[in-house]
């Protein structure tokens, strides 16, 4: 089965990102394919490398980055949601004249069309959030 994943809530504030991560791992272990993970609403906060959780807690962000690298997963942050919340890659930094970027490795910023495309191309689109 080919899955699209949508994550709508921020890390630590809400369990959605943890549940989605566990689902993605289980799906891959079972031989399924992840077409794309799309981060929307406060879910875009899963993609800032500046996050520094306490050392005895899980690191939601580096966990995503490692997953993307190990399993070659396409992880997309919605550009409109990211702009509101200050998630910035190099291109956005230049385009909006900011003094820094903060996107974590393995993530890319793109448009909502990527979500719709995931819905069209995947066999199932799963939404994690409230």
């Amino acid at each position: 089965m080919k899955y699209g994943i949508m994550i709508n809530e921020g890390p630590y504030q809400h369990q959605a990102a943890d549940t989605a991560f566990n689902f993605v791992q289980a799906a891959l272990d079972a031989g399924h394919e992840i077409f794309r993970i799309f981060f929307y609403h406060d879910g875009v906060n899963n993609g800032t490398r500046l996050t520094t959780p306490p050392q005895d807690d899980r690191n939601v962000i580096t966990r995503w980055s490692k997953l993307a690298e190990d399993k070659n997963i396409d992880m997309v942050i919605c550009v409109a949601a990211a702009q509101r919340r200050g998630i910035v890659d190099e291109g956005e930094k230049d385009r909006n004249k900011k003094d820094a970027d903060n996107i974590a490795p393995g993530f890319r910023i793109s448009g909502l069309g990527q979500l719709i495309e995931a819905g069209i191309q995947a066999d199932r689109l799963l939404v994690f959030g409230d």
């Binding site: 929307y40 609403h41 448009g111 979500l115 719709i116 819905g119």
Partner: peptide, 19 residues
């Protein structure tokens, strides 16, 4: 909350995909 506004943004973008 921002859900209503950001939902409308998805609907408008999604409309271009002829679904």
């Amino acid at each position: 909350t921002v859900y209503a506004l950001e939902s409308l943004e998805v609907v408008l973008i999604g409309a271009a995909f002829e679904q």
